[in-house]
Design a protein around this nucleic acid. Structure first.
Lengths: 250, 250
DNA sequence: CCAATAGTGTCTTTTAGACAATATACG
DNA sequence: CGTATATTGTCTAAAAGACACTATTGG
């Protein structure tokens, strides 16, 4: 073994040699998937995008869009990042550009036997889609059929795998984030009114919001510059509402 | 194909047949690990448990305790749940019983090339250990060496893999949870004083807490029964402090 | 007695919540 | 005009933050 001035270089060389020699053991490995809980609010209803399975297992049942993470087959090619896999699935299965959608890792579900075929660990993500983008959604090629299900009907559907549990976890997370973050903005069009934003809160949390009190919270966001007035008014059944948009700073 | 009265039974039979015939494709699969960010607060310092690697890659560097998830090799044997893997690693690498430790899934890290050997996706968990349990911790058999590192020295250490990123994510999560949850109780002994609990908050969040205001928050927990008075006083350098413990309801 | 810190009290500001009152459309 | 609802206003209560004050110990 050659003498080196630092010892560190030597260690690096040693590690390089180790890696060159390294052969992955043939231990059993799980399949790893990403599944997406794609949510939107249209016509005052919270909906989740589901895809009808056309293959076993759970053939004919509704399931979350998703797929296996692409893993390369060596040290050089290790495949795609998890976020990239989620983004790819989103774009493949909905045609929606990542850029217009809020996407966040939710939780990893890996119970044994959650998939009867084999051990599958799924990294679940949730995506929030603005209602004006919903018409752009087209089911991807590998989906026999896609549909936006009413969240309040979830109990009646019997989803594939543990996907109902995943959907409920996503809902809890989104409802929680409404309180302290800006996620609600990902569920309204680029311009919106106070009542529209309030409706999103009510629909996601399932609880009525006092219009006056909600307006006060909204005003604080206005003052802080998160939101700014937009031109125009929204015509409604009664008094028209002022239209707002997110501030430039965002 | 036999006629069946419901069609559902038929579908189940079909699926059973599918599963019996099913052969897992030999697609590349990632290795899946669980890594643990084990945190404690001793002597007014936040510390994280690290283990010195005695194998390549990153031989000689410090890393989070963890290991590969045990995956069975078929439909029947699918191995252990993720939480079980985390619990097992905790017990193996620290000797601590799951029962006495707060354990929660943190986030899943799966960047390509985060491990130079092969594609490894790690489901990170964090664990909170009461200071009085720290002396019980003994490094597991497969660890050459374990040590509790000062969190504030993390920048100087250069951890293996992306483990520094994981530790920082855990810290953010714990600091966030202090605000609205009971996790702080997992970082003090079974009985504790108000200043001790306050110190945990200050150490984890890195921000001073006003003693008076903190005491008021504490009093609210007292009234709600989350906490109750315990016998004895804690002798300090000055005026002794009253000792409390968690309420029976917990 | 004195230094240190546990524990209390006070005052201000912010935020939430309940709810009344007003304003302004559309039909 | 009248109904609906956006918007403003008022009042109360809870909670946070700043900070002064008191109490009780060990040294």
């Amino acid at each position: 073994m050659a003498l080196t001035p630092t010892g560190k270089l030597e260690r690096d060389g040693e590690e390089r040699a180790f890696l060159a020699r390294y052969k992955a053991g043939d231990y059993a490995r799980p399949a790893v998937a990403v599944d997406l809980v794609v949510l939107t609010v249209v016509d005052a209803e919270l909906r989740v995008l589901l895809i009808k399975r056309d293959e076993h297992p759970f053939k004919g049942k509704w399931a979350l869009p998703g797929g296996f993470v692409r893993v390369g087959d060596g040290q050089k090619d290790q495949g795609e990042d998890l976020d990239a896999a989620a983004t790819r699935e989103l774009e493949e299965e909905t045609g929606l550009d990542r850029k217009w959608v809020y996407l966040e890792q939710l939780y990893t579900f890996g119970r044994a036997h959650r998939d009867p075929r084999m051990r599958v660990i799924t990294v679940a993500y949730f995506a929030l889609v603005r209602p004006d983008l919903v018409p752009m959604v087209r089911a991807g090629g590998d989906a026999a059929m896609a549909d936006w299900f009413l969240m309040r009907n979830l109990g009646k559907v019997s989803l594939a795998f543990d996907h109902e549990e995943i959907v409920r976890a996503a809902l809890r997370r989104v409802a929680g984030k409404l309180e302290y973050s800006d996620v609600a903005f990902s569920l309204v069009p680029l311009t919106f009114t106070v009542p529209e934003l309030r409706a999103v809160h009510e629909i996601v949390t399932g609880e009525k919001q006092d219009p006056g009190n909600f307006r006060r919270r909204f005003n604080r966001m206005l003052e802080s510059g998160v939101i700014e007035k937009a031109p125009g008014k929204r015509i409604t059944a009664s008094k028209p509402a002022t239209v707002y948009r997110f501030g430039r700073s965002r």
